[in-house]
């Protein structure tokens, strides 16, 4: 199975990378680990004229903890490293655990945290080759005019299935985006458009250099749980991340973010307000579980029954909070 033709660039600095991207305009794409993009290219869902690899930019592979500032992780850090790195394990074990749940060992060896948060949305009607597509009318994401999952839908409902973003969003992570105009810091959540077809706000010519989890979040209790039908390999059919701050046994802050249920990592609004000031206990777990359940609307665009996926959102939310009670 071959790839469409492209020109390969491997700049050795971020500056050079930005320049190359700017030079190639819209037909250039950033290549990180390639485990998402190259598959879509093989399926002819993308055919960029050039690929600009981040592999040779050493600064993207740094993991730095600065007291008071938080934990900064280069976009090029691989998921294997993320899962095993001593600093990550110490400062944010939930992130290391979540990284270990992604895909397979071989994929984690090359896939990066930057690539993971920018993983494209997926759908059983989208991640297919043209040969398969010959018998199925093109949907929105295949540049057609309909959705097979929501027949009357006016937009694409492809689902975001990244494992790391929900946790990072729950932890209030920010991203550093570099472009020709310079660097800007933005909340991670702001990258996502919510549209299944083009799930990211405009990133043309830009590179995500890294992420920072603020110091305040590193002291929170946090965890990610993933629902899938097999013990490995699979994308989340549903995923829940929770970050929780307690003060004298009472909830000071609670953030709840889901994956596998919408076209973006989905923050459950009101989860924090509902919990504020309450003791962490079974009742709160049930309440948060219900909130998450009500907010999640998985569709039949993946394997697994949407109703089962929705129930698992509730169950996993309860289970995470229960795990914090120990």
């Amino acid at each position: 199975m071959n790839l469409p033709r492209f020109i390969y660039h491997s700049p050795s600095s971020l500056k050079e990378c930005i320049a190359t991207l700017a030079d190639k305009k819209n037909s250039a794409q950033v290549l990180a680990g390639g485990s998402d993009l190259l598959v879509r290219m093989k399926l002819r869902l993308e055919a960029p004229g050039s690929l600009v690899s981040l592999a040779d930019i050493p600064t993207l592979k740094d993991i730095v903890y600065r007291p008071g500032k938080g934990l900064t992780i280069g976009a090029g850090v691989t998921l294997s490293l993320l899962a095993s790195d001593a600093v990550i394990r110490e400062r944010c074990p939930a992130l290391a655990d979540a990284a270990g749940l992604v895909a397979t060992n071989q994929i984690r060896t090359v896939a990066t945290i930057g690539g993971n948060i920018l993983q494209n949305t997926r759908c059983r009607y989208y991640n297919r080759s043209p040969l398969w597509g010959m018998a199925v009318s093109p949907c929105f994401k295949r540049n057609g005019g309909l959705c097979h999952v929501v027949p009357r839908g006016k937009r694409c409902f492809a689902v975001y299935q990244g494992d790391l973003a929900p946790l990072l969003i729950a932890l209030n992570a920010s991203v550093k985006i570099v472009s020709k105009k310079g660097a800007e810091e933005a909340p991670l959540e702001s990258l996502y458009s919510g549209d299944g077809k083009s799930p990211f706000n405009n990133l043309a010519g830009k590179v995500v250099e890294g992420l920072t989890i603020p110091e305040g979040s590193l002291n929170m209790l946090s965890a990610y749980r993933k629902y899938r039908l097999r013990g490995g390999i699979d994308f989340p059919l549903a995923g829940v991340a929770v970050a929780l701050k307690l003060d004298n046994g009472l909830v000071q802050d609670l953030r709840l973010c889901l994956t596998g249920v919408a076209s973006r990592p989905f923050t459950v609004q009101g989860a924090g307000d509902a919990a504020k000031g309450k003791p962490l206990g079974r009742e709160l777990a049930r309440e948060e579980g219900k909130l998450a359940y009500a907010a999640a609307h998985p569709l039949a665009n993946l394997e697994g029954d949407p109703a089962a996926r929705r129930s698992m959102i509730r169950i996993m939310t309860e289970d995470i909070l229960a795990s914090f009670m120990v």
């Binding site: 059983r124 009607y125 991640n127 297919r128 398969w132 018998a135 199925v136 039908l229 097999r230 013990g231 490995g232 390999i233 699979d234 994308f235 394997e303």
Partner: peptide, 23 residues
């Protein structure tokens, strides 16, 4: 295997849940 109107909807090892080493 899910077939809808003659189209297989899960034509890959990712979508068709054959056992992995975990199973």
């Amino acid at each position: 295997i899910t077939v809808k109107e003659g189209v297989t909807l899960n034509p890959s090892f990712l979508d068709y849940k054959l056992p992995t080493a975990h199973e």
